[in-house]
């Protein structure tokens, strides 16, 4: 019997279990990230950091609904030069910290990435998919040529693995995935663009109007895109989108994910969700008669 049935690996980073913290949830403050790692997450991905400090949008920046969460935070971040302390504190937990970054072009991505790497992160995740800020995120991530240039440039200049987080808000995600094929892994998916209107105020609730939809509602979309990209590219994948239970994790893994990220579930189950789902995963693995979660990666992809 395998003594580490939940252990997995992505881009050369060994994870004690497949559960990582998704970018954008409880990952602005190093103390919070350290606590989440101590609560059982195998790794954390930071909030997306850019070149300059940004305050983001005025609240409401979130709108929780039935089975989903809409958010438009607005890439709030302190600027890469001020983020070293948070990485240092997060790393006190002794587990991998992956730095998420955004930029407007390959040159800016590279500047931020090099600085992030110098803080001692285990890997870099490229936010090519933020759905609600003009000039960043999915505006870049929907252009295959630009994606290829950014990923290529970073892979040439960085020592740590590079992961590309892609948007579901595109017509052909396989084309974007192929453009990011130089990456050490694809992160699928970011939030789905959406809106909520308050019918009494007769206005959108989010200050930005449009936001990104996450939570249980998007899980079938995420699993489908992981499955489709795995089938078409065979690339290493981190699955994310609406994971609430161990069985959700297993769906992503069978669709082709080597690891997964949890985000919105923390709103409902708190930080202890990592430890709980890891335990549930162990039980589920036994029920499925498998000694290692690695044996199940992509089994549902024909």
């Amino acid at each position: 019997m395998n003594s580490t049935p939940l252990r997995t690996e992505i881009g050369g980073i060994t994870l004690e279990n497949p559960l990582m913290l998704a970018s954008g949830i409880l990952d602005e403050n190093g103390y919070t990230m350290a606590r989440i790692l101590r609560e059982g997450a195998a790794a954390v991905v930071t909030k997306s950091i850019g070149l300059d400090e940004r305050t983001g949008y005025m609240p409401p920046v979130v709108f929780p609904g039935d089975g989903y969460l809409l958010n438009a935070i607005g890439l709030t971040n302190p600027g890469i030069d001020s983020f070293g302390d948070e990485i240092r504190v997060a790393k006190e937990a002794g587990k991998p910290v992956i730095g998420s970054i955004f930029g407007k072009d390959a040159e800016e991505f590279l500047r931020v990435a090099l600085k992030m790497e110098s803080y001692g992160v285990a890997g870099i995740e490229l936010n090519l998919s933020c759905p609600h800020v003009k000039g960043f995120g999915s505006e870049i991530g929907s252009d295959p040529a630009l994606v290829e240039e950014i990923v290529g440039e970073l892979k040439r200049k960085l020592k740590v693995p590079v992961f590309a987080k892609l948007s579901p808000n595109v017509t052909d995600i396989v084309a974007i995935a192929k453009a990011a094929s130089a990456s050490d892994g694809l992160v699928l998916i970011n939030t789905v663009r959406g809106i909520a209107i308050d019918i009494f105020a007769r206005k959108p609730v989010l200050t930005n109007g449009y936001g990104g939809l996450s939570g249980r509602a998007i899980k079938p979309i995420g699993v489908r895109l992981v499955h489709e990209v795995k089938k078409e590219t065979g690339h290493a994948i981190i699955g994310v989108g609406g994971i609430y239970t161990a069985s959700d994790v297993m769906e992503y893994i069978m669709a082709g994910a080597d690891a997964v990220q949890l985000g919105t579930v923390l709103m409902d189950r708190g930080k202890s969700v990592f430890r709980e789902i890891a335990a549930e995963l162990g039980t589920l693995l036994e029920k499925l008669g498998e000694g290692s979660i690695r044996n199940l990666v992509g089994v549902a992809v024909s």
């Binding site: 949830i25 602005e28 103390y31 919070t32 350290a34 606590r35 920046v61 979130v62 969460l69």
Partner: peptide, 20 residues
């Protein structure tokens, strides 16, 4: 305080979310 629901990390202190 921004989100109120324990996800945005703005109100955190020492890893505790003030809102939740």
């Amino acid at each position: 305080m921004k989100c109120g629901i324990g996800v945005c990390d703005s109100c955190s202190i020492d890893g505790f979310q003030l809102c939740t």
